[in-house]
């Protein structure tokens, strides 16, 4: 019993400290959910951004229709672009994923906006969220809070067709 407890504690500690450095994925039906992540927020920030990579391994189109997280009063799906040097973002009512396609939520394309986060997000933390797909249904995920820059060398762009 004591040995089991010790093993569990070691395991929990190991997961808590080792996990933030590795990618994490989820599956909901035919939808693969790759590495949901978010940036650390400055204090007083009223919004936080989130990103993920969604792949449809099935033969029918699906659609991400909502996201919710207990850390935010509301979470929106946004399209964002920089056009003629001007940045703009607009709320979307969902994001379609064609069969065999990967939709990457990334800077200047798509992001989640966590509105009024109830705390400052710090590097290395995780927080829960629920993604809702039209066909694949609801899936609980955790967003990793991590510092990432858009520097080409610093990001892993493999697997989504080099959109940048």
């Amino acid at each position: 019993m004591t040995l089991l407890k010790t093993t569990l504690v070691v395991l929990v500690v190991f997961i808590a400290f080792a996990a933030p450095s590795i990618a994490h994925d989820y599956t909901a039906g035919n939808i693969q959910i790759g590495h949901p992540w978010s940036r650390p927020t400055p204090p007083s920030a009223k919004v936080a951004g989130g990103y993920v990579k969604l792949t449809n391994a099935g033969s029918e189109p699906d659609r991400l229709i909502a996201i919710a997280s207990p850390i935010a009063s509301r979470t929106e799906i946004h399209g964002s672009v920089v056009e003629n040097g001007v940045a703009s973002m607009r709320p979307l009512d969902g994001a379609g994923i064609d069969p065999g396609a990967t939709v990457a939520f990334e800077a200047e394309r798509l992001h989640f906006m966590f509105i009024e986060p109830n705390r400052q997000l710090r590097n290395g933390e995780r927080f829960p969220a629920t993604l809702v797909f039209e066909k694949a249904g609801r899936v609980h995920v955790e967003f990793m809070v991590q510092m990432r820059t858009s520097a080409p060398a610093a990001e892993d762009h493999s697997g989504h067709g080099g959109s940048q």
Partner: peptide, 17 residues
């Protein structure tokens, strides 16, 4: 502006770096 989850904090973090 600070109600900007993407490009604004990213630029500020990058300028910091």
């Amino acid at each position: 502006f600070t109600h900007c989850p993407d490009i604004c904090p990213t630029t500020l973090f990058e300028l910091t770096d």
